Amino acid sequence: MRVTAAETLPTLDFDPFDISYFADPYPDQERLREAGPVVWLSRYGVRAVARYTEVHAVLNDWQTFCSSRGVGLSDFAVEKPWRDPSLVLETDPPEHDRARAVLQRVVSPIVMRRLRDNMVAKADALVAELVARREIDGIRDLAQAFPLSVFPDAVGLVHEGREHLLPYAGLAFNAFGPDNELRREALARAAPHVAWVTEQCRRENLAPDGFGAQIHAAADTGEITADEAPLLVRSLLTAGLDTTVNGIGAALYCMARFPDAFARLREKPALARGAFEEAIRFESPVQTFFRTTTREVELSGAVIPEGQKIMMFLAAANRDPRHWQDPDTYNIERRTSGHVGFGFGVHMCVGQLLARLEGEVLLDALARRASDIRLAGEPVRAFNNTLRGLDSLPLVLTPA
């Protein structure tokens, strides 16, 4: 039975999962922000928050706005999940903390420092090759190729079958949406991708020195159970790839559209991390997530009953003029601390350190190897119920 708003809320009827919205979400995101701090989306019978203050508040209060009932439109209290819930994304403390502690150790800042030299070398070699070629597809040749050249090896995956990784991650994020064509098509194609990923998450199929083996080793010490270990490897595969691919794609798209930003990056390559971080804020590869209220709560004057879905527009919050100065400007020297592109609070994206490292070393290599990045054709959008990214990005790279 569809819920109705118990209080008077501003109401909007647009579909945030429609292809036309995905193609140009900014007008509707502005309408959401200006309509009020909490808005009723009549199409799906859910409340929505799009201003930075409310999105940040919901993300930070897991006790009131839980993830364990699903971070998509489906409510796990009344609907069966399409697969076993994620131990980090779709659980709450204390269960969440136990699993997350393992992942945070496996992909800690210390581990990232150990990986850095190898990633720098691989990024430099790849960019040198592509700059010599001049005309490339920024998504296929860079945004996808680089993470796929370093991340599966770090996890300890076999080489055969890695083509299943991107479709599986896309499937997981599509499944957070409603029962629309994107979700149905993704689930219809799911079987081979799910089967391969499930099999590779088993201990015996992982290299002994990779992230996956380290996660399984946590079962030996009792931090997690043997049954939980493959689910946690699966969570890492989902968190560590698609957000990185779309984040790098966003940064490349920004560099091609805003040549002054790339010129500034060339002058000061140390801005590479900031340039990537600003691209995450500016483009928000992860557009939305849901939470469910565990009790009646008042949020910015709106009383929300227990058991209600809240749709958070992370992308709209990342361009909220109440919080950001000139939010629609891509500024690689902006102080981006506090953006919600990787989420916030206890459920903040567990793959963010990997994404940041990969994005930084690639942009640094581009700043050294290329004197100019230009669009060579019209980019093609990749449509997903949760993610914003590109399927193709024709670029021309001019050697430095």
Rank of each mutant, 00 (worst) to 15 (best):
Arg2Ser: 14
Val3Ile: 13
Glu7Ser: 13
Leu12Asp: 06
Ala23Lys: 06
Leu32Gly: 05
Gly36Asn: 14
Arg43Gln: 15
Tyr52Ala: 02
Phe65Arg: 09
Ser74Ala: 15
Asp75His: 07
Phe76Cys: 03
Ala77Glu: 13
Lys80Met: 09
Pro81Cys: 10
Trp82Glu: 11
Leu87Trp: 07
Pro93Cys: 09
Pro93Tyr: 10
Val102Ser: 05
Met112Lys: 01
Met119Ala: 14
Ala125Gly: 10
Ala125Asn: 12
Val127Tyr: 09
Ile139Arg: 02
Pro147Arg: 11
Ser149Asn: 10
Asp153Gln: 11
Ala154Met: 13
Ala154Asp: 13
Val155Thr: 00
Val158Glu: 15
Gly170Ser: 06
Asn180Tyr: 11
Arg183Lys: 15
Leu187Cys: 03
Arg189Gln: 12
Gln200Glu: 12
Gly212Thr: 03
Ile215Pro: 05
Ala219His: 05
Ala219Asn: 13
Thr225Asp: 11
Ser235Met: 05
Gly240Glu: 08
Gly247Pro: 06
Phe258Asp: 12
Leu265Pro: 00
Ile280Cys: 02
Phe282Ile: 11
Val286Leu: 15
Phe289Leu: 15
Phe290Cys: 03
Thr292Pro: 00
Glu298Pro: 01
Glu306Gly: 05
Phe313Tyr: 13
Ala315Leu: 07
Ala316Phe: 06
Ala316Cys: 12
Arg356Thr: 13
Val361Ser: 12
Arg369Lys: 14
Val380Asp: 02
Arg381Ser: 05
Thr386Phe: 04
Leu387Asn: 04
Leu387Cys: 07
Gly389His: 06
Asp391Tyr: 07
